[in-house]
Design a protein around this nucleic acid. Structure first.
Lengths: 323, 323
DNA sequence: ACTTAAGTTTGCAACGTGGCATGCCACGTT
DNA sequence: AACGTGGCATGCCACGTTGCAAACTTAAGT
């Protein structure tokens, strides 16, 4: 059995309460006492029991990060940053994967983790706004990424409409005229995809649109969709992809068909994942400030409850070799 | 305040103990009582308090996954699988990042999480074998990846020597003769890198070796090292990279220098990460069975304590476009 | 010398749950 | 009628910690 406060107290010849005071850095402990107690702690290898501490304090020090897939590079990079920043604030991150499944998202929204974590960072995919609004669980929640704004919930996101407009505008500025948008989510309530589509449309103005749906946002989807696009009678001369993964799949499709990038086809991605910096050619992309997103989201969790906040994180367009 | 057993008990007109029996599916509860209690649970939205339950039961249902970097694709993919499998077993995964820092690894080995988790899945990077052996913490530990075997600890890994031998052998079988190994860790105690080097040497037998050290195993390191290799008077005609990330960086370097892959240069990676399937050309690689690794590791945690187990997970060589 | 304040240590109680032992009841068996 | 059995419900207690308030000690101010 692990040593407990009682054991340390006996060993040091003080009360349990005093040991607790030492452990918690309470101000009024005589230096000599503190030293003696600390020696006993070290000697016995005492470690506070988290369960008892949590039960008593009412806080766990845990934060749940809910994402569709932790192995999707964007989420992996976001998770890495979240874990680091959380640690610097004394928090520990626990990962939940939804696989984009609405049921699972619902479960997590409605308190699957409620007694286990102090807060939830939620990256929604398929969940309906009504579910968000109907939430009864009281654990602080911050949405990552865009949502439709109808549910009164804190959220942190970049300006997806502006970013998509810039990305598309950049393609137009390089002289492209048949610019496709790749990444539409046909049956999904996914708000992020809708916002990026809106930005694309704004930038195109009167130019003809070409909006390509995909099932998911992986490389394989981008690959498949791009092959189909290149097989058309009049293929696009540029594609704005809603994620870097789609863009990398598309890039691969161009190579398969012998289409030169950026000569015959320009590509812009979204997310600025590490792979895009080393693809051939390197991927032009919208880079969301992931560190800032993680920071702002954790700030938001820590903040006093109040009216729902809507926080905009910075982003920038990074022009590389595919455009 | 969240409702507790007491509140449900009052609402249903039974004792606290009976509610507890219902929650835990105890056998001897009259169907009518069970139904009534369940109704109260639903009505009040009762959720068991994890802290209290943990304190009483002595188990948390949490498992720590300790990796150098969660945003390194191999670890992200491993984490995704671990989280899924853990969930199917009623466990929740909590992520710790060490950034390959020996101090941090040491901390985690010596009980930083001891009172918080039921077990630790540890992917060591820089920690000394002596630290493993000197561990006093009693939380079950399973090492992921190779170690030197001197510390009596459970571990799950593929046969890195054999895998490296196969990879190098494959390059030789395609007629390459100047085969470099990329990924040596100069000052590190990293056992995995040493095993892969051993396999490389075995395969080469009497052929001349070319062993290239790198600081870390990222794309940028592979890129830099490959550029240097290509600048040599007599560059290699094949490179066995210790990770796919290194290989992808090398691939990019080849493109930068106008070297044809696989014509002038063959590449083999290690890990079978998603990006490698969509690079141009697609990456030949050693594919460890990540699902199996995660399963075996969790099995190992759940198993009765006993003599240290050394479990070998399957792998296979996947030949694609770079060789 | 007397009061006040600041520093230091302590005991008690409670956080919400589940293990244990026990009690109660109805029913069937000896 | 006494007994045993199995189904069901309950009260008490402990898990290890910290908040609270009180007690005691020493130093400083009047």
């Amino acid at each position: 059995m692990n040593p407990k406060l009682r054991d340390v107290a006996d060993h040091a010849g003080v009360s349990v309460r005093t040991v607790s005071n030492v452990v918690n850095g309470f101000r009024y402990v005589a230096p000599a006492t503190r030293e003696r107690v600390q020696a006993s702690i070290d000697a016995l290898g005492y470690r506070p029991n988290m369960a008892a501490r949590t039960l008593r304090r009412g806080r766990t020090g845990l934060v749940a990060l809910v994402v569709p897939e932790i192995d999707s590079p964007y989420f992996a990079e976001l998770a890495a940053r979240t874990v680091r920043i959380a640690e610097s604030r004394g928090l520990t991150v626990l990962i939940d994967q939804t696989d984009g499944d609405a049921e699972r998202e619902k479960e997590l929204l409605h308190g699957r983790r409620s007694q286990l974590v102090d807060g939830v960072l939620f990256s929604p995919w398929a969940v309906a706004p009504a579910e968000l609004a109907a939430r009864t669980d009281t654990v602080p929640l911050v949405l990552l990424g865009e949502h439709d704004g109808t549910a009164g919930v804190d959220h942190v996101a970049i300006d997806n409409v502006a970013a998509a407009r810039e990305a598309t505008g950049h393609l137009l500025a390089t002289g492209r005229r048949r610019v496709a948008a790749l990444g539409i989510q046909p049956r999904s309530l996914n708000a992020t995809a809708r916002q990026r589509l809106a930005g694309y449309r704004e930038a195109l103005a009167e130019l003809p649109r070409l909006e390509v749906p995909v099932q998911r946002l992986h490389r394989a989807d981008g690959h498949r969709a791009m092959l189909a696009l290149l097989d058309r009678a009049e293929p696009p001369d540029a594609v704005f992809c809603f994620t870097d993964e789609l863009a990398l799949g598309a890039l691969r499709a161009a190579a398969d068909r012998g289409v030169s990038v950026p000569g015959d086809l320009a590509l812009v991605g979204f997310d600025d994942i590490e792979d895009g910096r080393f693809s051939v050619p390197a991927l032009t992309t919208v880079s969301p400030d992931k560190d800032r997103i993680a920071e702002l989201a954790l700030d938001c969790l820590a903040a006093e409850p109040g009216p729902p906040r809507s926080i905009v994180a910075p982003h920038r367009l990074v022009v590389r070799g595919t455009s």
